[in-house]
Design a protein around this nucleic acid. Sequence first.
DNA 1: CGAAAATTTGACATGACTCAACTGGAGTGG
DNA 2: CCACTCCAGTTGAGTCATGTCAAATTTTCG
Lengths: 193, 193
Amino acid sequence: MEFQSFIAHINKHITLTQAEQQLLSSKLSYRNCLKGQYLVQQGEVCLYEFFIVSGTTRTFYLDQSGQEHIIMFCIEDWWTSDMGSFITQTPADYHIQCLENTQIIQFSRELKEELYSEIPKLERFFRKIVERALVASQKRIVRNLSMNARDRYLYFKANYPAMEQRIPQYMIASYLGITKEFLSKIKSQLLQE
Amino acid sequence: MEFQSFIAHINKHITLTQAEQQLLSSKLSYRNCLKGQYLVQQGEVCLYEFFIVSGTTRTFYLDQSGQEHIIMFCIEDWWTSDMGSFITQTPADYHIQCLENTQIIQFSRELKEELYSEIPKLERFFRKIVERALVASQKRIVRNLSMNARDRYLYFKANYPAMEQRIPQYMIASYLGITKEFLSKIKSQLLQE
DNA sequence: CGAAAATTTGACATGACTCAACTGGAGTGG
DNA sequence: CCACTCCAGTTGAGTCATGTCAAATTTTCG
């Protein structure tokens, strides 16, 4: 079946009948995005939630002084969106950009409402996904509060080894909340040990 | 009716019938907690989600060096819990403590499952609540990344004026990610302007 | 009133930033 | 295949925001 990986992802959290899987599949479509392409632009209303089938995205905030602050990276099997914008239909706070060619499935509000009414179980699925994301987000706050730059980098390296390869260092620095120069110094210091 | 404020809170997000309101009320009970009391202890499994009827709580992480890092304050009409612990039944990452005498309604996993099956709409309600919390959490990450200590304080003051009165300064400092001494210096500097 | 807790203040230390110069690939075009 | 450019990454000197520690002061509350 075509949307196998997505269905499998859902079945990790709830159990869909064959009929429900069929119904769901019939409403989906893939979209292929190029490296560099924007899925959401800060200031414009975010119309979708995105499930990443393959590829990588970054979500970042551009402040008044033109600096980028990376909130999250997203890889296959994860969801991304500017949720605040999506649920209230107000201008997005963040940009979401593909860092590689990326294949996604996108969910508009209408599609989600339709799915909720036809497969009410999905309400539970999305609740669980958001719960997980909230837990991760709070843990990130704690790390930023309680760890210094060096330890945050070591944590990142240990927990997202795949990302360290695929993502340029200056973006990792931004994600960690430090400058690219300082990350470079941390790395060279770590090598000397 | 007894659980009026709670029912009103729910009705802000979904619409319950009279019968559903009755049913819901019949399953709830208040619990009164004293200032200083812990609702959740780091290291122990968190058994409930809490709705705050009145009072204030803080959620904080105690690191190896014994330092406290405040993740959030909670006041009336909000929810608090260690969600990671609650949903996976693993030891909690955080302490949750009452800063005043606090009246709560607590929801165990069993109660929530029961409610979900009897009032499926609540699935949607909780999804929305968690979505809101996630949006707030991500915004906090961005503020911590993009603003300096002084601006974070001004933001806090402007957006949570009520809390500034009720919460000791050293906790606000911890929430902002700075030391109490430095917050004190920021305040005195602001006064001189 | 008195003790404990919270806040303030000052001297000094340091982690992280800025800026500018330099290095080294990865294209690109002649 | 070389020369050129562009972008990511490195390195170093100087600076700044914030932290540490210790003492003084104020507030809270039994």
